[in-house]
Design a protein around this nucleic acid. Structure first.
Length: 259
DNA sequence: ATGTCGGCATTGTGCCGA
């Protein structure tokens, strides 16, 4: 089963490019972030025409996550537990059946800039809530996958110019520590289980010719519970999409799981 | 430090978020 995560930066602006990629890559499951659309305005038909079941958790203008799946999605839940006052659409879960059940979580973690400030406090609070949710999911001892735009550069090797990000909410020590605290519950960073070393990025800013200079960062991650990590056979970043017409500033990251 | 996008309120363009 091939599972991809892709921050599309707006479903309306990205629909043709997204459909082209789906037709080529044929993922069984796609976790989308920044759909920037209410659920009622999300264009379901072109995906259903291609055999995908569609579930969304969106809002007007900002944020928003969705799951596309070739097989039916069960037990869909929307929103990250732990704060009833949080109305930002950044978390969705569903169960998909392969040879065995897999719980998938699609997430758009807060950016947090400028730091320090209320947006950074929200990011760290959100990560603490995600830690608690992740611990509960691990306790099921079932295969679990949490994938999306984490807005965290885990290590200096995950940036072309780490010094440029040193004071940024994506790389501050507290952000990295909160990310490690989640991973250290027992998750595997799927990409780092397969590929070592610098030079692997999933985001290049639209500004300042970042793509042309390969001035990127790796912030889109797939974390696997032990039971899911045992099924991992491959993980890649679809870097090539960033050079196409009207690209998102992120590219897809995908894993192959033997289920 | 910032050369770009996408969405929105709005009908020409500035603001916000990233």
């Amino acid at each position: 089963m091939r599972i991809a995560t892709f921050n599309i930066n707006g479903i309306k602006a990205r629909l043709p490019a997204l459909l082209d990629w789906l037709d080529e890559a044929q993922p069984d499951l796609a976790l989308l972030q920044e759909i920037k659309s209410p659920d009622t305005a999300f264009p379901q038909a072109p995906f259903e025409d291609r055999g995908y079941n569609v579930v969304t958790h969106g809002q007007k203008s900002f944020n928003g996550v969705a799951i596309l799946s070739k097989t039916p999605l069960e037990d869909v839940t929307r929103g990250l537990p732990g704060d009833d006052d949080d109305d930002q659409a950044r978390w969705i879960e569903a169960t998909v059946m392969g040879k065995r059940a897999l719980r998938v979580c699609g997430l758009y973690l807060p950016n947090g800039n400028p730091a320090p400030g209320p947006k950074y406090d929200y990011k760290l609070g959100w990560m603490a809530r995600m830690h608690d949710r992740a611990a509960r999911l691990l306790a099921t001892e079932e295969p679990v996958l949490m994938a999306g735009d984490y807005n965290v550069i885990p290590q200096d090797e995950d940036a072309k110019r780490p010094e440029a990000w040193a004071e940024d909410a994506l790389a501050l020590p507290a952000s990295r520590a909160a990310f490690r605290r989640i991973v250290n519950l027992g998750f595997t960073d799927a990409f780092r289980a397969r590929v070592q070393g610098p030079g692997h990025y999933s985001f290049w800013d639209y500004q300042a010719g970042a793509w042309n200079r390969d001035d990127g960062i790796r912030i889109d991650h797939v974390l696997l519970s032990p039971q899911a990590a045992d099924l991992l056979t491959d993980c890649r970043i679809d870097r090539e999409l960033r050079g196409r017409e009207k690209p998102s500033d992120h590219v897809p990251v995908w894993v192959e799981l033997g289920l």
